[in-house]
Design a protein around this nucleic acid. Structure first.
Lengths: 131, 131
DNA sequence: TCCCTGACTTGCGAATCGCAAGTGACCGTA
DNA sequence: TACGGTCACTTGCGATTCGCAAGTCAGGGA
C-alpha cells in the first residue's frame, strides 16, 4: 500500500530521479523549468482547456504545452477528463496536490512583483485565496 | 534614475527578456530551472564558498554552479566579495533581494515535504525564519 | 466533397545540460 | 628551485531539451 503524506493523503511516489531527499530539490525536479508553474498559474486562475493556455500572454508553444501537461498529469498534479466525446475534448484541472501549490505561486508572485520592474500587480483575490 | 519597487528599494531592471508582465512568469525567467533555487537554499542555510555548494547532496557540476552564481549575481540576487587575496577567494551572499526569496523557498519546502515521498522534514528554524 | 478547426505529433536546428578534462594561480614540501 | 597538489573555474563535446514550423488526424460545417 502506498505510504501516506503528513496530511494522510497518499504521497506522490517518486516519479523522476531525485537528486536528494530535500523537499525543495525534489519539488524542483518536478516543476523547475520556465513553463510548468505558469501552466499551474493558469489552472489556478480558471483555465482548463488546451486552447485557453495557448492564449496566455507568454505564448507557449503547442509541443511544450502538451508535454508539460502530460508531465503534470503523470506527477498527479493535474487531472485530465473528457468533457466532450465528439470530437474528443479534455478539460484539465488541478488535483488537491496541485491546488496545494497555491501558496508557492502566491509567494513567487509577491516576490516578483516587489523585485522586478515592469510586472503587473497580481489581483487581490489571487493573493488572498486560501487552499 | 532607476524606478523604485513597491517597497522603495531600486527595482531589479529587466535583465532577461520577459515573456510577459506577470510577476510569476518574470520570476521564473530568472530562477526557473532545477538548480538556481537549490543554490539560494544553500545560501539561506549558511553556505558561502564555492566548494561548500559542491558538497551539497545533489551533486551539482562545477560549470553549472559557476554559471548559475554568475547569473544570480547579474540579477542582483547574490553578491560576490573577495575575502582572501592570495589566492583570490570569493564569498557569495544573498542581497536583500535574494533574502526576500525566503518565503518562496519555505512554501516550496512545505509543499514538497507534504506531497513527495522520501523527502526529509525541513528544519524548524528554516521554516520559522522571517526575512 | 472540400476546407477548416483543434489538439496534438514530428522534424529539425539551436540552445542548454552536464561529464570529464584542462587551465592557471597559488601553496606546500622536499 | 622544482614538483605535485588544490581550488575555482573554463572548455570541449556528446546528449538532451527547447521551440519553431509544418504535418497529422478526427471531426465538423457549408
Amino acid at each position: 500500500m502506498a505510504s501516506r503524506t503528513k496530511g494522510g493523503a497518499p504521497a506522490l511516489p517518486v516519479l523522476v530521479p531525485q537528486r536528494s531527499g530535500c523537499p525543495i530539490a525534489s519539488t524542483l525536479d518536478l516543476v523547475g523549468d520556465k513553463w510548468t508553474l505558469v501552466i499551474v498559474r493558469d489552472l489556478l486562475t480558471g483555465k482548463s482547456h488546451f486552447s485557453q493556455f495557448l492564449d496566455s500572454p507568454e505564448g507557449i508553444s503547442t509541443n511544450i504545452l502538451a508535454s508539460r501537461l502530460k508531465a503534470l498529469e503523470d506527477a498527479g498534479i493535474v487531472s485530465r477528463s473528457l468533457y466532450q466525446a465528439q470530437p474528443p475534448r479534455h478539460a484539465y484541472a488541478l488535483t488537491p496536490r496541485g491546488e496545494a501549490l497555491l501558496p508557492v505561486l502566491q509567494a513567487i508572485s509577491r516576490w516578483g512583483n516587489a523585485q522586478i520592474e515592469k510586472t503587473w500587480t497580481p489581483p487581490a483575490w489571487f493573493m488572498e485565496k486560501r487552499v
